[in-house]
Design a protein around this nucleic acid. Structure first.
Lengths: 128, 128
DNA sequence: TTGACAGGTAAGCAATCGCTTACGTATTAT
DNA sequence: ATAATACGTAAGCGATTGCTTACCTGTCAA
């Protein structure tokens, strides 16, 4: 197959990717308590301040934080709205684990379950 | 600062990272309709089957899918339970966008908001 | 004005990612 | 037996990530 085209331009970070990193999730958690300057945030991590700055940039590109300059510090605040996309996506699957025996999961796999049983008895599968 | 230690051993994929990739999210979506063999899944994407196999491996390591062999095909099925971790994390922030003027967000940033106003009037900030 | 502080940014580097092609291994069809 | 199918896996690749150190600018304090 022809090689996949490389992404060009500045990497527009999407929300799912942004929260894929545990450090950034912790940053979101910390900012959930309220606006905070970079140094205060960085103090909570075992890495350098520039590293945190870079994580904050990713969060910013994902629309998850905004900055405001106060004196010589920059205070970041959480913009949780983009998380809604994640929430909406994942909330759909809630039904897959909350319900019991009559779950949608089981309903959907009903046929598959029957096939599995037959497997146990060495029944032939219909040709794939 | 001393360089961060490289992660050793096989990369145990965590759920957040697993769903950080759009291809893997689509795989989850497809599997949400029910158990499916690899070829059927791969047919929906503009990439080779091995690429899909590798994505499925990541999902498997994250506990998001299970496999079952049927004849010569392997049928993957969704195991949505680990998504609960994502759901729980993100659900906390729902309040930040659902409520109106009296949101927790505003409550937490109440002080910050006042400072901002003062900024408008060129008032000095208390020393950071 | 000089220095200390807050923090962004660039460069560099090893590790990881996401993809490809090539190949190996079961299983089914002929 | 032989070929075809379904799939995994390894190797190789360029791009990206996550960190570091080094350096820069802007603001406050002395």
């Amino acid at each position: 197959m022809t090689p996949a085209k490389p992404r060009l331009g500045p990497p527009r970070h999407d929300v799912f990717q942004a929260i894929g990193d545990p450090t950034r999730r912790r940053l979101v958690d910390l900012l959930g308590r309220g606006e905070q300057p970079v140094n205060r945030l960085a103090g909570r991590f075992a890495m350098t301040r520039p590293a945190i700055s870079q994580h904050l940039r990713v969060l910013h590109q994902a629309g998850l934080v905004s900055v405001r300059r106060v004196g010589r510090e920059r205070r970041y605040r959480l913009r949780a709205r983009p998380l809604r996309e994640v929430y909406d996506w994942v909330a759909y699957y809630e039904r897959f684990w909350t319900r019991g025996l009559k779950s949608l999961r089981e309903f959907l796999d009903h046929e598959a379950e029957r096939e599995k049983k037959h497997d146990t008895f060495k029944r032939r599968e219909p040709k794939p």
